[in-house]
Design a protein around this nucleic acid. Structure first.
Length: 438
RNA sequence: CGGGGCGUAGCGCAGUCUGGUAGCGCAUCUGGUUUGGGACCAGAGGGUCGCAAGUUCGAAUCUUGCCGCCCCGACCA
């Protein structure tokens, strides 16, 4: 993409409404624009990141055996009246009437609908287990949205719902999601720590939330520095014992948010040198319900003995749009964002230090063409700005690699390649650039 | 929902107390000099001062009502 033809409205100063660093940087780099409290337009660069995160989530859900569906944002109220939650949900639910004066709502979650879909499609235990998920915009009319997309009212969320015949099978479904979450975050360059969580109003038997460390995190966290978050390559999702064993290893380490924190237990179980206290942002939450929802919602299948059995269910959420902000919170410096390569809007920022100079232009065009042809996403700053302004802007938007090309380097047939994360620079012969960055 | 604050040019702000017809910095445009870490000079464009009603010869400024947004708390993916 040529910057001269892109839409990336950069702001030099922090907008006053932004409090935390991710919100400031998302506004300054032109990733988002606020439309109302807690409601944002995603501009080109923000959308690219959002899509990359979404795709990683999707791939890892699929890998773990979940099946994608897509449910509507607007739901009929009747479904919620049946579950009793239409009245219980309160003002957070945005209620709408259609032209026929029917009660509708903008979905804050999809348990009712997915259960209905599942009931209609599955009658026999032979069709279990199943795990259905979708990635969809949700709306919760929070009293006070804040921190940009970190806590918006409209947000993109992946939610999955598992259905099993037995408790043991349900636990395996839960464990698979547990593992897939660790893989998902790791692919985004994040270290997410699973912590035993309150099941809260949603209830259930077992629950973990996944937090990534960031100074601006909403909850204090306490954990063992040795906690494992890397999934072994060899893990097989179908291997019940192996998956359970791995989850057991991970959850054996002490890790708790302040609500669940027990200082005595922490000190007893973790040697002082490994006790870490910090703050975390919740980027995922998984629940195993057992039959807590399936019984009242009459989600039954016919078992081997021809009797009705309530299914064992679980639900699994990842805040996709929140992750965009969370990654920035976890990965930035004074100059701007530092994108992990897997979610970066572009892999390479190509800086033409002397736009208008025939030789420099030609050299940049050649590199741009070669990298693009190779499938490398390049943002080419071909604008007629001064070098300093280009450097500052490129650091701000935080692409993993910068290729800096001007007459000085061109004389020796080299470009300067800068790694945004480490700040390391090296001169790379023009002929080797594609190999270096490909 | 309780408490506090703010709406003036794309962004950040001054002007409001004490009414006289809108200004600064950045950004943008033009010309020139510059050119490897947010250049300089000269010139220019851009605002129904959140909306509405009222007071007044005259309202960004005073009064009333409404709307929007932000912060703290409670709540939360």
């Amino acid at each position: 993409m040529r910057l001269s033809q892109y839409f990336m409205p950069i702001l030099r100063d922090d907008p006053k409404e932004a409090e935390i660093v991710s919100h400031k940087l998302m506004l300054r780099t032109g990733m988002i624009r606020q439309e109302a409290a807690g409601s944002y337009s995603w501009l080109p660069m923000g959308l690219k990141v959002l899509r990359k995160i979404e795709q990683i989530v999707r791939e890892e859900q699929n890998r773990a055996g979940a099946i994608e569906v897509l449910m509507p944002t607007i739901q009929p109220a009747d479904l919620w009246r049946k579950s009793g939650r239409y009245d219980a949900y309160g003002k957070e639910m945005l209620r709408i009437k259609d032209r026929h004066d029917r009660d509708m709502l903008f979905g804050p979650t999809n348990e009712e609908m997915i259960t209905d879909i599942f009931r209609q499609g599955v009658q026999s235990y032979r069709d279990l287990p199943r795990n259905l998920y979708h990635i969809q915009w949700k709306f919760r009319d929070e009293v006070r949205p804040r921190f940009g997309v970190m806590r918006g009212r409209e947000f993109l969320m992946k939610d999955a719902y598992s259905f099993d015949l037995t408790v043991e099978a349900g636990k395996h479904s839960y464990n698979k999601m547990f593992v897939s979450y660790l893989r998902t975050y790791a692919r985004m360059g994040l270290k997410a720590i699973p912590m035993r969580a309150e099941t809260g109003p949603i209830g259930g038997n077992d629950s973990h939330e996944f937090l990534i460390l960031a100074e601006t995190g909403e909850s204090a966290v306490f954990f063992d520095a040795d906690v494992v978050t890397k999934v072994p390559d060899a893990i097989q999702y179908d291997d019940v014992a192996q998956v359970a064993d791995f989850v057991g290893q991970v959850t054996a380490a002490y890790a708790a948010t302040e609500e669940k924190h027990d200082a005595n237990d922490f000190e007893a179980r973790v040697p002082e040198a490994r006790r870490v206290k910090g703050r975390g942002i919740e980027v995922g939450h998984i629940f195993f319900f057992g039959t807590k929802y399936s019984e009242p919602l009459e989600c039954f299948v016919q078992g081997p003995d021809a009797q009705k059995v309530a299914v064992q269910s679980g639900s699994y959420g990842i805040g996709v749009s929140r992750l965009v902000a969370a990654i920035i919170e976890a990965s930035h410096d004074d100059a701007g964002i530092i994108w992990p390569e897997a979610v970066a809007p572009f892999k390479v920022g190509l800086i033409n230090l002397k736009s208008g100079d025939a030789e420099t232009d030609a050299a940049c065009e050649k590199i741009y063409g070669e990298l693009t042809a190779r499938g490398v996403e390049v943002l080419y700053d071909d604008k007629d700005d001064r070098a300093g302004a280009k450097f500052a802007a490129m650091d701000l938007i935080g692409l993993p690699w910068q290729v800096i090309l001007g007459p000085r380097g061109l004389k020796d047939g080299v470009a300067e390649v800068k790694n945004r994360a480490t700040g390391e620079r090296q001169n790379v012969p023009l002929a080797d650039l594609v190999k270096f960055l490909g």
